[in-house]
Design a protein around this nucleic acid. Structure first.
Length: 111
DNA sequence: AGTAATGGACGTCAATTGGA
DNA sequence: TCCAATTGACGTCCATTACT
């Protein structure tokens, strides 16, 4: 299946994926952003709110990347397991053939 | 052509874990 | 004990495929 990776692309280019426009956590961060408009005098509480928003954005960004890495590692792990299965299946096949050949030899000797 | 089903990738949240 | 990293679960989007 072809995957476009358009969301990754949009993240890289700074576009906002549609689902991020929805308000997570019942729109908490949105209201905070509204309250902390730049260029105006900020009272301590709005500064605090801005700090909270910034920390949240940093956390989300880190987690986003961590999730990507986690999935990458998981896929790699699964691929390793699949390779191992293939190797073991081949070994098994070879051993079965070998056993069969030995049995043949043994049977003919017995006759 | 339109549509439902399916699968892969993603972002987010929440729980867990390991190190300082 | 706190904090950052990790990861499972969930909901969403998008592309492809199968069916009508």
């Amino acid at each position: 299946m072809a995957v476009t990776g358009d969301e990754t692309e949009s993240a890289a280019t700074g576009d906002i994926p549609a689902y991020q426009l929805r308000s997570p956590n019942s729109g908490l961060s949105q209201s905070i952003v509204m309250a902390a408009s730049p260029g105006t005098m900020q009272n301590p509480s709005s500064q605090h709110a801005e700090e909270i928003t910034r920390k949240r954005e940093v956390r989300l960004m880190k987690n986003r990347e961590a999730a990507r890495e986690c999935r990458r590692k998981k896929k790699e792990y699964v691929k390793c397991l699949e390779n191992r299965v293939a190797v073991l299946e081949n070994q098994n096949k070879t051993l079965i053939e070998e056993l069969k050949a030995l049995k043949d030899i043994y049977c003919h000797k017995a006759e």
